[in-house]
């Protein structure tokens, strides 16, 4: 296997060893394979693309062919220690409902998304065009991303629903953190990772 994307390695640091995990939009299963190897997690991935499903199966990763927009009603409340979703939030019909469902099914949630507040995005929009950036390489008419948000938008949503932000990692497009991002996160972060917990009440 090629070297793991740094953001996925970072997620590994947030996952307690031996836990039970559900990975939404698991792709070819790279994260689950990494977590199984380094964290001895058990779990399943949900994936909609048949080629990815076949790739997971061929790699020995537990994968369930499913459409995230159909929700998580098949999974019991508190069935998993973690529910993880990397870079799928912005492609969902109702990302707010899916995150709420993730918080029902999992004790903790890890979600990552591209920051639409990044300066490249703003620059493109100031020029009057939809952004084409390294993090958002598709054209407006063929992108899968239908619900893009900024860091500020996402954190406002967390506040509105009372979701606790346990940790966040704000990275550039090479998945590194840095002083610029620390100084002005919503301008310089390209990839955001959040670890959430459901409201205490």
């Amino acid at each position: 296997m090629s070297t793991l994307r740094p953001d996925l390695a970072l997620i590994g640091d947030w996952i307690a060893p031996g836990s039970r995990i559900l990975d939404l939009g698991c792709g070819d299963g790279a994260l689950l394979a990494h977590l199984a190897r380094t964290r001895q997690v058990r779990g399943y991935g949900l994936e909609i693309d048949p080629d990815n499903v076949a790739a997971c199966i061929a790699a020995g990763i537990n994968v369930i062919h499913a459409d995230l927009d159909d929700g998580l009603a098949d999974f019991a409340t508190g069935a998993f220690d973690y529910v993880v979703m990397t870079h799928a939030l912005q492609a969902l019909v109702r990302p707010d409902l899916v995150v709420a469902e993730m918080l029902r099914v999992g004790r903790e949630v890890v979600v990552t998304f591209p920051n639409f507040g990044h300066w490249r995005v703003r620059q493109a929009l100031l020029r009057g065009r939809m952004p084409l950036t390294p993090a958002l390489p598709a054209q407006w008419y063929d992108t899968e991303n239908i619900h893009l948000c900024t860091l500020a938008d996402f954190e406002a949503l967390c506040r509105e629903f009372g979701w606790q932000v346990l940790a966040r990692a704000l990275l550039d497009r090479r998945h590194r953190s840095g002083k610029l991002i620390a100084a002005a996160p919503n301008l310089f972060c390209e990839n955001a990772l959040y670890k959430l917990r459901r409201p205490a009440h």
């Binding site: 399943y44 048949p50 499903v53 076949a54 994968v63 369930i64 062919h65 499913a66 019991a76």
Partner: peptide, 10 residues
């Protein structure tokens, strides 16, 4: 899944 068995579904 509830029984915590290994399963894949295509």
């Amino acid at each position: 899944v509830v029984a915590d068995r290994d399963v894949s579904y295509a």
